[in-house]
Amino acid sequence: MTQFYFVRHGKTVINAEGRFNGGSVDSPLIPSGIAATKRMAQHLKTVSFDLALTSPQMRAQTTAKIVLEESLNPPALTIIEDLREMHLGDWDGKNIAQITAAYPEELKNYRTHPELFNAEKIHAEAYSSLIARSTKVIKEVTETHPTDKVLVVSHGILLMALLNTLKGVPLAKIRESGIVDNSSLTILNHSKDQMFFETWGQVF
């Protein structure tokens, strides 16, 4: 089986400011985000990764580099466009409280009824698109690296949608378990025929 180590990036300036941190915005990790990621890196330093994949966004790349700095013989970091965070269109970078006031119905569906979320209305990406591109990455890696340990560094909404979909959770319910924390680790053992999670959203 392929053993995936899914990591959500460390906490960023935009996270700390309470703004939407989607696929078209970026900001540096804050000190607490760096510290939390370094604690995770210490936990993972004995893991010999065969492959390391990251979203193209700098917050994910920075997180991946911190983790790999502690690894013995780390692989080169490979940037995968399909691991980019969900594009949130008109909401990206905007204050969450302001968006809550301006788009109450759309935000309710985004958070609690993803099957009803009208992405086109705010020029955003649909959940179905996010799920399709992220699950494609996992399927391809499982086929090409069937016995490897793979680091995957990405984002909160993407990981929430991807991991719940892999568990067999339907679209309407993918947000019920919440979003994994910044600098968290989820380990999945995955093959064509079976899968199981060793840990989910562990923080350090």
Rank of each mutant, 00 (worst) to 15 (best):
T54Y: 05
A119M: 10
A132K: 15
N95M: 11
Y5F: 15
V25H: 03
G22Y: 06
I79H: 06
D193F: 00
R111L: 15
L185D: 01
Y110D: 02
P114W: 10
F6R: 08
I187N: 10
L88T: 06
K11H: 12
I99P: 00
N15A: 03
V153T: 12
D82H: 12
V141K: 12
E105F: 07
Y5V: 09
S27D: 06
R8H: 01
D50R: 05
T135A: 00
H113S: 11
H87S: 11
M86R: 15
I131A: 02
E106I: 13
F197A: 02
Q42G: 13
E17K: 14
D193Y: 03
G89P: 13
G22E: 05
L68M: 04
G178Q: 05
V153P: 05
S129A: 13
K11C: 08
I34E: 09
N189S: 11
K11N: 11
E198Y: 12
G178W: 11
G93W: 04
L188N: 06
T186W: 12
G178R: 05
P31L: 00
S183I: 06
G201W: 09
L162S: 00
D90T: 10
E81W: 04
S24D: 09
V141G: 03
L130P: 04
G178F: 08
W91P: 07
R133C: 08
M58L: 11
T165L: 00
G93D: 10
V150D: 11
K149N: 15
L116D: 10
S183Y: 08
T54Q: 05
P56T: 07
M1V: 07
I174H: 03
E115H: 14
Q57G: 02
I179D: 04
E176A: 14
G33I: 07
I30K: 06
A124G: 06
M86Q: 13
W200I: 04
E81L: 10
H113N: 14
G168V: 01
A97W: 06
T144Y: 09
V25Y: 08
V67Y: 03
G89D: 03
A64H: 11
M195W: 08
L163M: 08
V152I: 15
S48N: 14
T63A: 09
K65A: 09
R8G: 03
I79D: 01
T186D: 01
D193K: 00
F117R: 05
A119W: 03
S177T: 15
G201F: 03
V67E: 04
S32K: 15
E143T: 12
F196E: 06
G178M: 12
H190C: 07
A132G: 01
P31D: 09
L77F: 09
F4V: 03
S183A: 15
G23Y: 04
V150S: 07
T165R: 08
E85P: 09
T199V: 12
